[in-house]
Amino acid sequence: MLERTETTDTIKTDVVIIGAGPVGLFAVFELGLLDIRAHLIDILDKVGGQCAELYPEKPIYDIPGIPYITGIGLTDALMEQIKPFSPAFHLGEMVTMVEKIGDPLFRVRTDAGKTFECKTVVIAAGGGSFQPKRPPIAGIEPYEDKSVHYAVRKMDTFRDKRLLIVGGGDSALDWTLNLHPIARRLTLVHRRDEFRGAPDSVNKMRALVDAGSMDLKIGQVTELEGSDGQLTAATIKDKGGALSRVEVDAMLPFFGLTMKLGPVADWGVRLEDNLIPVDTEAFESNIPGLFAIGDINTYPGKLKLILSGFHEAALMSQKAHHYVYPDKRLVFQYTTSSTSLQKKLGVA
């Protein structure tokens, strides 16, 4: 579980890459060959983006030269490939603001309180940010962030509270076990009496239920009660349709993640149907120095393929070089034959 730390120092770097999916990772390689250093920020607590979150074990058949690889396999291979460039990762953080403060200079802020200053920004955010699914319970909105929470920022928020945790995966189980000791009473609700979380966590949870120190209810939450954003009770419907009511101070639903565009819409970058239009020479947005590569961009003929994102990363890097090293001439070289590139890769 991530505990967030606040930092006040501004991190200065050549480029900030928003999104650590396959395309963001490969951009580190292409930029690295041109001596451009990168920091990557991703809302997930792991690298790999959709490859890691949606299909880690599923096969991908259309990576050039690799007949078959899984999402996690591709992620691992990319991490190995970019190792020589030692990129810095900021995981579990969402970029809240990108603003142009110079020519070329950008300021980037995250919801963990970090600030970056960089010459260029690369948005490689795929389908947007992975955000928690919100349950369709009527009237849930006023409680959100007050007494309905989709993540635990500070455990102490829940001390001595009556908690309702909803879900059957590792997040629901881990937080059940972590918060149980400090909660006044904890109820776990899941739609069936089987849990897909780690067996050890399931056993620990069941032991607590057997000992009478927490409650487990099988069903779905259908109604919330409270006022001014403060929950007081929730109604749970079991499989047979019978209703029961639990008095609670806070609810934590864990239904997995879904992709939402997120704050990109607030950065002044032009959007078309939630995608960033770019040119096909450098994959630059309407804001000079702000690039968009991978699934989040659009241009005539665009295909949302990982291989297209790789191509876009290579071309983007050439233009990024102009911003980072305006006085240096860029000489095109091959990794196969260039001693200078091989030195950067640590193989010459």
Binding site: P136, R192, F255
Partner: peptide, 13 residues
């Protein structure tokens, strides 16, 4: 699929 249904809402038999 049953496990994935845990991440859906208003699931029925």
């Amino acid at each position: 699929e049953e496990e994935m249904l845990d991440s859906a809402f208003e699931v029925k038999p």
